[in-house]
C-alpha cells in the first residue's frame, strides 16, 4: 500500500461576497500517494489552478482541510507555509521558473542559500542532472536554453530540495509533442523511481499516458476519469 503524501478533504474555495460570490472548488476530496503521477485535467477557469494553489499552501480553503504527510496545513501562517513549500513541495510552473540572471548551477546554489541542509547530496544531484540531461548546461543562463531544456532544469530545481511532492502547473504548455513525451516520461520516472507524489495540473491530454491517476475538474467539481 502506497503512502499518502497529500490529501484534500471536502475542500471548498470561494471568492468574493454575496452577489459576487464565486465557488472555484466545491467539496473536493482526493489523495495523492508516493510513487504516483496524478493528472488533473480541466478547461480554463475550471478551478484546477485554484486546486494547485491550495495543495501548495499558497491559498487556504474556505472549507475543508489539506493534509501534508498527515499534518493539517490548511491554516498555516505565511512564514510556515513558505517553509513548508521550501522543504516539502517542489513547484514546476509554466514559465518564469528560472531566475534569468543565474546560471543553471546558480539556480541550485540559490536554494542552498535559503535551505542549506537536507538538499540532494552531490551524488543525488549528479544522478538527477544526468537523468535530465542537463549536466552540460550548468554554466549557461536560462536565456541560452531551449524551452525543453529550461523545463528540465526547472524539474531538477524542484527536485533539488528533495521534496515529498512535486506540483506542476501546465509544465508542457510551451512544448512540442516530442518534448511533451520527454517531460511526461521524466515525471513518471521521478514518481516511480524516487517515490515522489507528482501532481500535474494541465489541459494537455498528451500527458495521460504517463499518469497513474487522471482526475477531471469542471466548474470546481472533481471526477475520477479512471
Amino acid at each position: 500500500m502506497r503512502e499518502e503524501k497529500l490529501a484534500l478533504e471536502h475542500v471548498t474555495k470561494q471568492f468574493g461576497q454575496k452577489t459576487n460570490l464565486v465557488t472555484a472548488l466545491e467539496d473536493v476530496s482526493l489523495a495523492f500517494k508516493a510513487g504516483e503521477v496524478s493528472l488533473i485535467i480541466g478547461p480554463s477557469g475550471s478551478g484546477k489552478s485554484t486546486l494547485l494553489t491550495i495543495l501548495g499552501g499558497l491559498q487556504t480553503p474556505t472549507d475543508g482541510s489539506v493534509r501534508l504527510n498527515g499534518h493539517d496545513i490548511s491554516d498555516l501562517s505565511t512564514k510556515e507555509a513558505e517553509k513548508t513549500r521550501l522543504e516539502q513541495i517542489g513547484f514546476v510552473l509554466q514559465a518564469y521558473n528560472l531566475v534569468p540572471y543565474l546560471t543553471v548551477a546558480d539556480q541550485f546554489k540559490l536554494v542552498d542559500q535559503v535551505k542549506p541542509n537536507n538538499n540532494l547530496s552531490q551524488d543525488g544531484f549528479d544522478k538527477i542532472i544526468e537523468t535530465l540531461g542537463i549536466q552540460k548546461l550548468l554554466n549557461k543562463y536560462p536565456g541560452e536554453l531551449s524551452g525543453g531544456q529550461q523545463q528540465r532544469v526547472a524539474i531538477a530545481r524542484a527536485l533539488y530540495t528533495d521534496p515529498a511532492i512535486i506540483l506542476a502547473d501546465e509544465p508542457t504548455a510551451a512544448l512540442d509533442t516530442a518534448r511533451v513525451k520527454e517531460v511526461g516520461q521524466l515525471f513518471a520516472n521521478i514518481a516511480h523511481d524516487e517515490e515522489k507524489a507528482v501532481v500535474i495540473v494541465t489541459h494537455d491530454d498528451r500527458l495521460r499516458e504517463f499518469s497513474d491517476n487522471v482526475y477531471k475538474i469542471v466548474d470546481g467539481k472533481l471526477s475520477n476519469t479512471d
Binding site: 501548495g56 499558497l58 512564514k79 513558505e82 517553509k83 513548508t84 513549500r85 521550501l86 522543504e87 513541495i89 517542489g90 513547484f91 510552473l93 514559465a95 518564469y96 521558473n97 531566475v99 534569468p100 540559490l110 542559500q113 535559503v114 535551505k115 524542484a158
Partner: peptide, 16 residues
C-alpha cells in the same frame, strides 16, 4: 515580479 513571484511560490523567504 514574475520571477520573484515564482521564487516566493517555491518558498524563498520574503526577507531574503
Amino acid at each position: 515580479l514574475p520571477n520573484l513571484a515564482v521564487l516566493r511560490a517555491q518558498g524563498i523567504p520574503n526577507r531574503f
